[in-house]
């Protein structure tokens, strides 16, 4: 893609493109997945252990992190997840890593995000898949090893993708 498409990328078309792709239904086939879930190499239900492995041990303070998603998602194939961590991003005091988990997905880890002081702000947004209603966890660790988290239960509307 050259500069033409880039310069033509208005806010409307940009977000429109996301919406259009969202029409494709992924959850339909995710629904019949319990058998496969058993075969997955990272079984659900061990998110606490995954957090220790991915970020480190320690007590997670339930503050500073915000998952800004409505409690009910229309489409499990495309759940909008904006996450912010209210923390300075300074040379010796910044958020180093943020990890996101969906407890009841066959593989709970969605992704990890590494920041630097040059990030300016520890805030990301993406769209994720949810096989069914689940707790979503966002956990962040600072360069000093302090853990912060937010846990949010998100319902996934029935029907939309069940065909």
């Amino acid at each position: 893609m050259g500069m033409n498409s880039e310069s033509a990328l208005t806010r409307r078309t940009f977000l429109g493109a996301v919406g259009a792709t969202g029409a494709v239904c992924v959850t339909a086939s995710l629904v019949g997945m319990p058998a496969l879930a058993e075969a997955a190499d990272a079984p659900a239900g061990n998110v606490d252990e995954a957090i220790v492995k991915d970020l480190g041990p320690g007590k997670i303070a339930m503050e500073k992190v915000k998952i800004d998603t409505p409690p009910k998602a229309e489409n499990g194939a495309l759940v909008r997840i904006p996450i912010s961590v209210d923390h300075p991003m300074e040379k010796d005091n910044y958020i180093k890593t943020l990890a996101i988990y969906v407890d009841d997905n066959p593989k709970p880890l969605v992704g990890k995000f590494e920041f630097t002081p040059e990030s300016g702000k520890s805030e990301v947004e993406m769209r994720i898949k949810m096989a069914k209603a689940s707790q979503v966890r966002a956990v962040a660790i600072s360069n000093k090893g302090a853990l912060y988290g937010a846990y949010l239960k998100i319902e996934v509307a029935e029907g939309g993708c069940a065909g």
């Binding site: 997905n105 992704g111 990890k112 300016g120 947004e125 993406m126 898949k129």
Partner: peptide, 20 residues
């Protein structure tokens, strides 16, 4: 910013972040 993803990120992934 470095992101490490799994297959739980939606199709045709949108991703936003910040820089200073």
């Amino acid at each position: 910013v470095k992101a490490t993803w799994t297959g739980a990120v939606s199709k045709n992934p949108f991703f936003s972040f910040y820089i200073k």
